[in-house]
């Protein structure tokens, strides 16, 4: 863990600064606002976890940082800085040089995220050669080191293996080897362990956490799993319908949550819900992003909502230690258990 506290004025410049990020997907019949004014920072060597229900805009936020959205149909507004790169002002060529080098990404499905007709070794070496313009031999040697680094057993043999010849856990490690091949300063991980079973998940997380500390990488880690977030996060951002509704240190957000939505997520985890099932503690489903209500987008599902909640979206309120919430009800005295509907 690092000492960097969100919101505190530290001398170190954040590695990532995102301000008022808005992402619209434009199609003939509708415009979907998938991300709606999101702001956050990540310090060097810090892990930010983004949690939230399906469709809340977590993946879209990550992909925006690499500009991986279909260009013709996407409108991105706001400001994103990673290291010295002002992401939105880079040319396509400059952006391509950043992708996979300074910023890289690990995806959710190790089954489908690797090219099925190239060997693991080829896929790692390709990235190394692309960014470091080195020879095939050097790249192959690097590929072997990388597989050793992510703790793939008998790495020499695995270099020549095709993705379908590896188990899910090994495939995800190979994916990490690809992502780490050029020593990124920022690693984006989009639910990298969700598709794996529990024991494999923990092994992968341990490897990831260790490498993150060794490299001093900043990591933005998307997950559904609050347990995973509690283990690896320094900071947590809770997203709902394209907005961050609660944001702060892992302590503040997970031990002392203020927003009724965060409380609901916690309650559903307490009840031992599996991923993909409805969340009992939060009735209803997320709103239609094409037609958001004028007020708080969580109001229709919130037990505490009143007329004020339906009129305006609450502005951010920041407490001591940088704990931010966007909720009218969280500012007064609410008893957490009552809000979650458990009492």
């Amino acid at each position: 863990m690092t000492n960097a506290m969100p919101g505190t004025q530290s001398a170190v410049r954040p590695l990532v600064e995102v301000k008022d990020l808005t992402v619209d997907f434009v199609s003939r019949d509708a415009t979907v606002r998938a991300v709606n004014g999101v702001s956050f920072d990540v310090m060097p060597g810090e892990v930010l976890c983004i949690i939230g229900e399906s469709g809340s805009g977590k993946s879209v936020t990550l992909r925006s940082l690499m500009r991986l959205h279909p260009k013709a149909r996407t409108v991105i507004a706001g400001h994103m800085r990673v290291g010295d790169y002002d992401i939105l002002s880079l040319s396509e060529k400059e952006m391509n040089a950043v992708r996979g080098a300074a910023i890289s990404m690990v995806f959710q499905e190790p089954m489908t995220a690797l090219d099925p007709v190239y060997t693991i070794g080829e896929q790692i070496a390709e990235t190394v050669m692309r960014h470091e313009r080195c020879s095939r031999e050097t790249a192959d040697k690097r590929a072997l080191e990388l597989l050793q680094m992510v703790k793939v057993p008998s790495p020499e043999r695995r270099l020549k293996a095709y993705p379908h010849e590896l188990s899910g856990g090994l495939r995800q490690r190979a994916m990490m080897a690809v992502a780490l091949s050029c020593r990124p300063t920022l690693l984006l991980a989009d639910e990298p362990t969700t598709a794996l079973d529990a024991t494999v998940q923990i092994q992968v997380l341990i490897v990831l956490r260790r490498l993150q500390e060794d490299f001093g990488m900043g990591v933005i880690f998307v997950t559904h799993d609050l347990g995973v977030a509690a283990q690896i996060a320094d900071k947590v951002a809770v997203m709902y319908a394209g907005r961050i509704v609660e944001y702060g240190t892992v302590r503040d957000v997970l031990l002392n949550p203020k927003h009724p939505y965060t409380l609901g997520l916690m309650a559903s985890t307490v009840n031992g819900q599996k991923k993909g099932e409805d969340i009992d503690a939060i009735p209803g489903s997320p709103p239609d992003l094409r037609a958001l209500p004028p007020g708080c987008s969580f109001a229709p599902r919130c037990r505490l909502a009143d007329a004020a909640c339906e009129a305006d979206f609450p502005a951010p309120v920041i407490r001591a230690g940088g704990h931010m919430t966007r909720c009218f009800k969280a500012n007064g005295e609410i008893r957490p258990m009552e809000a979650a509907g458990i009492a």
């Binding site: 690499m66 991986l68 391509n96 040089a97 950043v98 992708r99 996979g100 080098a101 890289s104 990404m105 995806f107 489908t112 995220a113 690797l114 090219d115 099925p116 390709e126 990235t127 692309r130 960014h131 994916m175 690809v178």
Partner: peptide, 9 residues
């Protein structure tokens, strides 16, 4: 996997 390839630069 095409997105992975793009993400590799």
């Amino acid at each position: 996997f095409i997105q992975t390839l793009r993400a590799k630069g």
